[in-house]
Computed example of a mutant assay.
Amino acid sequence: MATSMRWIALFLLVAVSALAVSAIIEDGLLPNGDFRNGPDKSQMKGPVLTGKHAIPNWELSGFVEYIESGHTQADMMLPVPVGANAVRLGNDATIRQQLKVARHTYYSISFIAARSCAQEEKLNVSVDPEFGLLPIQTVYTNTGWDTYSWAFKPRHTTVWLSIHNTGIEENPACGPLIIAVAIKTLYPQLYNKGT
């Protein structure tokens, strides 16, 4: 009887471990990382998002706008590509998402961003307790978009990824545009002696 209970306990342990591993986020876009699943119109006031969970899979705080292709601001068209959607992080705005990851494994977060105002813009990317402050550059290309990456090594299996605009401007809407957020597992390079 004791032996069969041990086998059942071992089986349950293996089954639970397999479920935990399968829940780890996969490489590629984060869930709704391209913001295609937009907000319900009842959670918007113009382009400004009014609900904490207005964008599926994301938690919002501060002055966050949902920008669709063709959106204009004071006679200036924002550079959102046709068919894409973006979020604009205005004054003290944050988007964040909870992720299931493997402890002590390196990951890279990448996102595509563009400036929307002339002011200096910076984004604080963090997975507690680690963070990185990334300046958003003016890119002189035909699109104005650039890709930014930041690596981290989580201490827990469940973490919050946050992207925060630290700026406070006279125009609260001034802030970076983001159109895609992705994750990649970084595997250590193995050194083969003699090669």
Rank of each mutant, 00 (worst) to 15 (best):
G51F: 08
N124I: 01
N91K: 09
T147L: 02
A54L: 09
G167V: 02
L186S: 11
W145G: 05
E169S: 15
L49W: 00
S61F: 07
T143A: 07
V16A: 15
S110C: 10
V14A: 14
L29A: 15
K184R: 09
Q98I: 00
E59C: 10
Q97G: 03
T185S: 04
A118H: 08
E121K: 02
T143N: 14
A151F: 11
L177T: 07
F131M: 14
V139Q: 06
A118E: 11
S17K: 11
G51V: 05
I183F: 03
F152R: 11
I163M: 12
L99D: 00
A23K: 06
F11A: 09
C117A: 06
F111S: 10
S69Y: 13
N124E: 08
W160G: 15
M1P: 14
M76K: 15
M76E: 13
L12E: 09
A151V: 13
H53R: 09
D27I: 12
P81L: 14
N142S: 15
D40L: 10
K52T: 05
G70C: 09
S69R: 15
K122P: 01
T143I: 00
T147R: 13
S110Q: 11
A15C: 05
E59S: 11
Y107Q: 04
E169Q: 15
A102H: 11
R88P: 00
I178N: 01
A86K: 14
T3K: 02
Q137R: 05
I25S: 13
K184V: 09
G83R: 01
T166S: 13
T72C: 12
T72Y: 06
P129C: 02
V101K: 01
P81C: 01
T195L: 00
I136N: 09
N57P: 05
K122M: 08
G28I: 11
W150L: 12
P81S: 08
P79D: 10
T158R: 13
S69L: 08
A113W: 00
R103L: 00
H156P: 07
G51W: 01
R155P: 14
L161P: 13
